[in-house]
């Protein structure tokens, strides 16, 4: 059986959904961040698979940008988590309500 881009798209969709479940269900904000990384990876798989399908490297270029953005997001996000943890001694997202009206 031949592996088509549709196979990769299904894999990517499943991975993305696992990420979404993680974001919506877990309460540890670090795990939520990791679930976001999973979703970004799902998108990357899709981009690379279709870049290979159309024999064009533009998809791979976008993956480079996604990885750069993921690195920036991880650095700032984890900085925020550390700063928050120092003040409130928690990483539970339900208790992070200081900005809530």
């Amino acid at each position: 059986m031949e592996i088509t881009p549709a196979h990769y798209t299904v894999l990517s969709a499943a991975l993305f959904t696992i990420g979404v479940i993680g974001v919506l269900v877990r309460r540890n904000i670090i795990i939520i961040f990791m679930a976001i990384e999973l979703m970004l990876n799902a998108v990357n798989i899709n981009l690379v698979a279709h870049a290979q399908q159309v024999e064009n490297l533009v998809g791979q270029v976008f993956v480079v940008f996604v990885i750069a953005v993921a690195a920036a997001e991880a650095a700032v996000g984890l900085g925020i988590i550390l700063a928050f943890y120092r003040n409130k001694e928690t990483v539970n997202i339900d208790e992070m309500n200081v900005m809530r009206w």
Partner: peptide, 24 residues
């Protein structure tokens, strides 16, 4: 790179109780 950062934060945030214990 990125995941080492996560591991660092997980270890720095040394939790006495699991965040899953607090149920909103």
């Amino acid at each position: 790179g990125i995941v080492v950062l996560y591991l660092f934060v997980v270890m720095l945030v040394n939790l006495g109780r699991s965040p899953e214990e607090h149920q909103d």
